[in-house]
Design a protein around this nucleic acid. Sequence first.
DNA 1: TATCGTTGTAACTATAATGATTACATCGAG
DNA 2: CTCGATGTAATCATTATAGTTACAACGATA
Lengths: 144, 144
Amino acid sequence: MKKFSSRYSIAVHILSLVALSPTSCTSEFIAESVNTNPVIIRRIIGMLKKAGLVHVRAGTGGTNLQKGLDEITLLDVYRAVEVADNGDIFNFHDETNPKCPVGANIESVFRTKMLQAQSAMEHELAQVTLKQLVSELKEKTGSI
Amino acid sequence: MKKFSSRYSIAVHILSLVALSPTSCTSEFIAESVNTNPVIIRRIIGMLKKAGLVHVRAGTGGTNLQKGLDEITLLDVYRAVEVADNGDIFNFHDETNPKCPVGANIESVFRTKMLQAQSAMEHELAQVTLKQLVSELKEKTGSI
DNA sequence: TATCGTTGTAACTATAATGATTACATCGAG
DNA sequence: CTCGATGTAATCATTATAGTTACAACGATA
């Protein structure tokens, strides 16, 4: 089955690194920690920038948080890099047969349930701030 | 972003149709309601069969529920047609740099949060039985 | 037993998202 | 002006999905 892209985990990685790093974070530097290509990093940073989560110094280089660590939740990051047009994570088979009573009405009934499930997931993501995450990260690493 | 496949909505459609239809449901018949190819239907029915949700009469044709309507939840259907190997819906960027304190530990911290979010979603799906869904469907259609 | 409709699958195609990479224009401090 | 960094387009390989054709196997029944 298709999962969420790894963009999300990379985005969280980037933000954690930016939060913890005393030095300026270039895409090259971040790419080394993530172990991927700098362009991948720049693309994701572009999304985070568009969402107002980070500020990037073009030309001279370097990324910084634009909000406090406790003002950014995992839901914010999720929405910045994963969410499609309408935000739904479930697909529906369009164009069911309108002549069939089931085909004509199943989608709206099913969609309601799916939106509830998605809300539950997003609610959970909204509970976790980057501050918490980074704090747990610090515990794991001892200190940085 | 990539969403869940429409297999899930088709699977629910199939089960609702089988539950409501007084006549035997062939893949041809179901395909007409869903408005797709019979092979698509047979493929999904194959997954539902493997999960023990339906019984199929090969040769003579026709699909029936193998459990009571109130014994099948949306989570059961979800797992039958959508769940990958380990069941996780989130991807992680593997092979982060182990020399970087963040790269070495971010995944395990992040994964914990993601599994909580996924659990919340699945818990919501587990609350809805096909019986409820079909009952709401009946209300919508007046009667079938 | 032979027939006929149905299921179960394999094989193939088109489409789309992802992740990686190269290339290059643009930015901005020194 | 120069140099390093960002922003972004273009390309490629890989993978999942959805649809389609084709056909073997099944099983009731005439």
